[in-house]
Design a protein around this nucleic acid. Structure first.
Lengths: 114, 114
DNA sequence: CCTATTTATTCTATTTTATAGAACAAATTA
DNA sequence: TAATTTGTTCTATAAAATAGAATAAATAGG
């Protein structure tokens, strides 16, 4: 058994890798996080996390071919594994089940305190 | 502005506090996590997390009255603040929006690899 | 070919979260 | 007032999150 639960950022990165399909590598993941989650993170944060995810078997990586653009070294492309898909879906289902038990959260009035 | 994001376990604990309503204290939270999330955690994990959540302003605590049962010291009862409700809903909405962008995740076939 | 530029990954360090469980405290009851 | 029960605090450690500098590799232009 691998780890039971994804960290908050691990889950986000994993989602981005699925979203990016064939072009999921460090900088693209960072960019996708900015676009889709409106969240600014450093490249170190992303790579630290993909390394962890790969070590846990939730993603795999392979070196991409040479870029067609100006310069740049070859990309390390990530793809989700079945184990990764499985834990993502599990995470989603469990969380939705919990939210389903708290109807109040759907109609909460946000005030000024707190 | 407080912290931007809840950790994975912080979110779970916050959800349990909402679920438990008037009776959210350390041991009850731990028990609710076992019941609702089928997850066994130690009391130290729970208290470390509620302390953090309170420091960040997502929950408040007050000492409860004496117990009606056999023994036991007074409970430290937690309630969610508006700030806590707000970040919980934000977390839920953002995650659902992301999942909405990945229709594949709804029909993934889980295989043997990974 | 060699240097500047670009694109990308690795490396190093630190802070914050997550986790465990022992120690301690308080309430009740006999 | 001792044993039992219920609960919180304390101490330590591992794992996740984060930042950004250092490094590497690819290409283009002179």
């Amino acid at each position: 058994m691998g780890k039971e639960h994804l960290g908050e950022f691990e889950e986000l990165v994993l989602l981005m890798i699925v979203l990016l399909k064939e072009d999921a590598y460090g900088l693209a993941i960072r960019h996708a996080i900015k676009e889709h989650a409106n969240r600014k993170v450093t490249i170190g944060a992303v790579h630290g996390t993909v390394n962890r995810l790969e070590k846990k078997g939730f993603i795999e990586s392979q070196l991409g071919g040479g870029s067609e653009l100006r310069g740049g070294r070859r990309k390390r492309l990530f793809t989700i594994t079945n184990s990764g898909k499985s834990i993502l879906e599990k995470s989603r289902d469990e969380k939705m089940a919990l939210w389903g038990k708290i109807p109040e959260l759907s109609i909460l009035k946000i005030g000024g305190q707190g």
